[in-house]
Write a protein that binds this DNA or RNA. Structure first.
Length: 548
DNA sequence: GCATCGACTTGTCACGATATCT
DNA sequence: AGATATCGTGACAAGTCGATGC
């Protein structure tokens, strides 16, 4: 594994144009009124801007939630003049409906714009992209990931977030730290403004940063996944996972052994690691209570998140998991475990309340320090990468039939991908139009079937003569029918599964590239343009016999 | 130790662009 | 051509994990 620099520096030269700021606020036309307690009221520009954020969200259920309304109102009041503050004291007396209607009309008008107008906007976007969307890092022109600063608005967050509704404030040049090389042409702040700071730190990869006001965390402008710097890191990640492959047997033997340890902390560590390995759970850092939604990973599991069943149906020692993970996505699973694990879990639960930690002698820092001793560079998340990639490889081996048609092989590929997505709990809400789209597909299949039987009848009728051409025809229809059926199967199986995240973040792309080469599948069938750019390094590198 | 910070990866979703259907 | 379904992309939130400071 050969990286560009070995001294921890990430680049030698970095030049860019700085970020693009959100457009300034445009006050509402006077005819669009806000009403308080039934009476029209003209607001100061800062207070008015905040109401526009709220009125654009009125159709969303969350604007009815207490926390959202409370947070919004509190932050809105901060933007009011003292006069406004004394008048506006109750959100329930606020009427935003004219504003809401106005924005609906506006967005309708945007949809109805002429081709020329739309084209003009497109060109302006393209111009911005060309000017601000690229940088020079070392000797290469690279695409920047997010060169636009996030506009102000109301924070939503995911799940049951205690800060939902808070005002995400506007970011100004004075908030921005620029990072570039000393010998580069420095980006200019907009006229009449200054950057917070310009620094030259080549130990980091970001071009600009600012502190966000909801959680107080830092946000960055970084390069696109197609860039050298991201690609190298990605490659490195999969190489670490491949090193785990070489020693995973040893590690498994060890943690099974540790289930018998005299020390509680070691047993807990060993059981947690077993879950991380077997179920691909995330590490589970501690979170500050009240700052974020209540979600957990492995190390932060609480007693209330698991149930133990000594017997369930025809299985023994079943553990039922039910908790909210990252992004408040529910993880629900029932799995039989080994007797020793089960007995350990019973022990961990003794004398605890539902809200107590399951692994009270363990956290991610302890776990990762242990893993580091087992293998250089090993952390909890490497298990997810390793298990995802090895599963894809195994499933592809198992499911691909060399004699299948291309669409059938791609179904196999998607099924292998699906196995991984299920392992990693990458779910999605079934698309709103799912049932209908399945019906449409079925209609097409029926039609195709009718076509086929008609063609076959014709063939029979004209058997003796001109056989060849008719035979070709039914063959073609058969092929189309098969393609439709494969499509239907794939869609049905994918109803609640999201393949994107695993494809982008967990599956060593060289496995997929090798599979394509081995079975003569064009790479475009597996990766779209963006994905091909991200995985260019793998497409270059992997041959048909690549083994993860 | 442990709390916090900083840098980076991973995650979902909405929306506009594009393909396909009528 | 216009309507509708599907896809791709960007937005931006939420994780992981090592470093830092007490």
């Amino acid at each position: 594994l050969q990286l560009r620099y070995t001294d921890g520096s990430k680049w030698r030269f970095l030049e860019h144009k700085g970020p693009v700021f959100a457009p300034p606020y445009e006050p509402l036309p006077d005819k669009v009124k806000f009403y308080y307690d039934g009476k029209p009221m003209k607001l100061s520009a800062p207070a008015e801007e905040v109401t526009t954020f709220f009125s654009k969200m009125l159709d969303h259920e969350y604007t009815t939630k207490d926390i959202f309304r409370k947070n919004f109102f509190k932050d809105w009041r901060k933007e009011m003049t003292s006069e406004e503050k004394s008048k506006i004291t109750d959100l329930n007396k606020c009427n935003f409906s004219e504003m809401s209607e106005y924005f609906k009309t506006q967005s309708e008008a945007r949809k109805q714009m002429s081709k020329e107008e739309k084209q003009k906007i497109k060109e302006e976007n393209e111009r911005l992209l060309q000017e601000y969307g690229f940088c020079i890092m070392d000797n290469h022109k690279e695409r920047i990931g997010n060169f636009r600063i996030e506009p102000p608005g109301l924070f939503r967050g995911r799940g049951d977030h205690p800060k939902m509704g808070m005002l995400k404030r506007r970011i100004r040049p004075e908030d921005i730290i620029i990072n570039c090389s000393k010998d580069s042409k420095q980006p200019k702040p907009p006229p009449g403004t200054k950057w917070k700071e310009v620094r030259h730190d080549n130990k980091v990869t970001w071009l600009a940063s600012w502190t966000e006001n909801i959680q107080g965390s830092i946000k960055y402008i970084m390069l696109n996944p197609s860039s050298r710097i991201k690609g190298e890191k990605d490659w490195q990640k999969y190489e670490t996972a491949r090193r785990l492959k070489k020693c995973v047997d040893r590690i498994r033997t060890q943690y099974r052994d540790d289930w018998k340890s005299k020390e509680m902390r070691i047993r807990q560590r060993a059981v947690a690691l077993y879950f991380i390995d077997k179920l691909a759970l995330r590490a589970g850092n501690e979170k500050e209570e009240g700052e974020t939604a209540d979600t957990v990973g492995c190390c932060s599991l609480r007693v209330e998140h698991i149930k133990l069943y000594p017997k369930m149906d025809d299985q023994e020692y079943v553990v039922e998991f039910d908790f909210l993970g990252k992004d408040s996505i529910r993880y629900y699973n029932k799995i039989p475990v080994e007797k020793r694990v089960f007995k350990n879990l019973q022990l961990f639960l003794e004398n605890k309340q539902p809200e107590d930690d399951l692994f009270d002698r363990l956290n991610t820092s302890i776990l990762n320090k242990h893993l580091q001793e087992l293998m250089d560079g090993l952390t909890a998340k490497v298990f997810r990468t390793y298990n995802a990639s090895i599963t894809l490889q195994q499933q592809l081996k198992e499911l691909t039939c060399p004699d299948d048609s291309v669409p059938a092989k791609i179904l196999s590929y998607n099924r292998a991908n699906r196995a991984v997505a299920i392992l990693c709990n990458h779910q999605r809400a079934p698309p709103k139009t799912f049932e209908k789209s399945m019906q449409n597909l079925q209609t097409k299949i029926d039609e195709k079937q009718n076509q086929l039987s008609a063609a076959r009848k014709q063939l029979k009728a004209a058997k003796a003569d001109r056989k060849a051409s008719r035979d070709e025809k039914s063959k073609k229809i058969e092929e189309q029918l098969m393609k439709l059926q494969v499509q239907a199967t794939d869609r049905e199986e994918n109803k609640q599964i999201a393949l994107g995240t695993s494809k982008l973040n967990y599956l060593d792309p060289r496995i997929s590239v090798a599979w394509c080469k081995k079975f003569g599948i064009p790479i475009e069938k597996i990766y779209n343009k963006t994905q091909r750019e991200k995985f260019a390094w793998a497409i270059d590198m992997a041959e048909k016999d690549y083994e993860f």
